[in-house]
Computed example of a mutant assay.
Amino acid sequence: MAETRHAAPGGGTLWPSLAMIGSSIFWGSMWFALREVEGAGIPAALAGALCYGVPLIPLLPFLYTRRRELAAGGWRMLLCGGSLACCNIFFAVAVVLGEVGVIILLFYLSPIWSTILERVFMKTPLTPVRWVGIGLALVGLVILQGVGGRAPWPSGLAEWMGLAAGMCWAVALLTARMWSHISVLDKSIAQFGCALPIGLLVYLLIGDHYGPAAWPEASTLMSAVPWIIAAGFIWVVPAMVLSLWGAARLSPGRASILMTSEVVVGVGSAAWLAGEELGWHKILGGVLIVSASLLESWQARRETKTAREGATA
């Protein structure tokens, strides 16, 4: 019954499900556009700031008309938007500088952080299913990283930023649950509005991986503009619209399960277009990490259904 209440009027769950899968295709292949921007001479953090900042342009009228609502949100609005912006910027840097398949799987360790945050801030009980999910994710991390003499944890700036992106995503999910009264439009405005300053700050802190931070020359920036616009409006905006539209019409569990198809798209496209190797450790570690995400989604779905049944009893 939970899914019936979330279904799109007159359309069931087919089109919203397809929308979630479509958004996963855009998110999973986003690395390609970001690397093209970086290849044009724009450093990774700056590329992320520009690509995720450009979608704010069509939202500027809403920034004015909803200025009171945005201001009333205060620090909660900043935390919602800032956590999403940090997630996007960190992920952008990571997939440009690191191995795409590994970065995406490190990002999908987010169920661990979601479970911890929900326990601390919402007093959500740690059920056996959640413990199993944490265990699967950690074993997957050890297998993913701990072969070939590597330490069983992230190594290098890119991989740590991929892990940090997943942590920021967990914070964003927590704020969405705690402050569900904040509209999707306001969160989107806050997210894209925070992307540019956060991206610039990250760039100043880490610099260009070829040297210290420096603003690109005008000619370099102009040569990258087509890919910046493409990344913003061909990848980010459709991905955001499809995911928000689909998630609003599906149960949280089903939406989260469908979003894991991003892993297949990201790892597969990186192997096809970037020539990344698909070793057994990546496949096995990926299966375990994705399984942890699926378990977390299933548990969330159960809890939502139980809460609704209790409310209607």
Rank of each mutant, 00 (worst) to 15 (best):
C168Y: 02
A247F: 10
S29V: 11
I257K: 13
L288A: 06
Y64Q: 10
F26P: 03
L79K: 10
M167A: 10
A92S: 08
P16I: 04
P16C: 07
H209W: 12
I289Q: 04
L97C: 09
D186N: 11
A40F: 05
G266N: 09
E309A: 14
I229T: 09
G140A: 07
Y108E: 08
S261W: 10
L163G: 01
Q299W: 03
A313W: 14
F90A: 06
L242E: 03
A292M: 04
G98P: 00
F26K: 01
H281W: 03
L117Q: 01
V96L: 06
L84D: 04
K123L: 09
L106V: 04
W169I: 04
T306Q: 09
W160H: 05
L138P: 05
I103G: 01
M167I: 11
L60G: 03
I89R: 00
G53I: 04
V241F: 06
V54E: 02
L105I: 06
A172I: 07
A248M: 08
K123H: 13
R76E: 13
G133H: 01
I103C: 03
V171S: 06
R76I: 13
E309F: 15
F90N: 02
A239Q: 08
E69A: 08
E36I: 10
A195P: 03
R67F: 11
P61F: 03
L97P: 01
C168H: 15
V225T: 02
V100T: 03
H209R: 10
V202C: 04
W160L: 04
V264N: 15
Q191K: 13
L141Y: 01
L46C: 06
R150E: 10
S110T: 12
W235K: 02
W113V: 11
Y52S: 03
I234H: 10
T220M: 07
G135H: 02
L244Y: 06
I257Y: 02
G156N: 11
W179H: 05
E309Q: 15
I104Y: 09
L284M: 12
P58E: 05
G285T: 01
F90V: 02
Y203F: 14
I229A: 05
Y210G: 10
T260P: 13
F32Q: 13
V142F: 13
V37H: 12
L50M: 11
E159H: 05
L278E: 07
I182S: 02
S269N: 12
C51G: 14
I283F: 00
G162R: 01
I228P: 00
I112C: 02
I229E: 04
W298S: 11
S114W: 10
V129D: 15
W75K: 08
T115V: 06
P16V: 11
F26R: 02
S297P: 12
S188Y: 04
L205I: 09
H209V: 05
E276P: 05
L63P: 02
G11R: 15
V241S: 15
W227F: 08
E277M: 06
I283N: 00
L138H: 13
K305H: 15
V290Y: 07
G74D: 09
W131G: 14
I198S: 00
G266C: 09
R150Q: 12
V95H: 02
W131Y: 13
A300I: 12
W245H: 06
W280T: 00
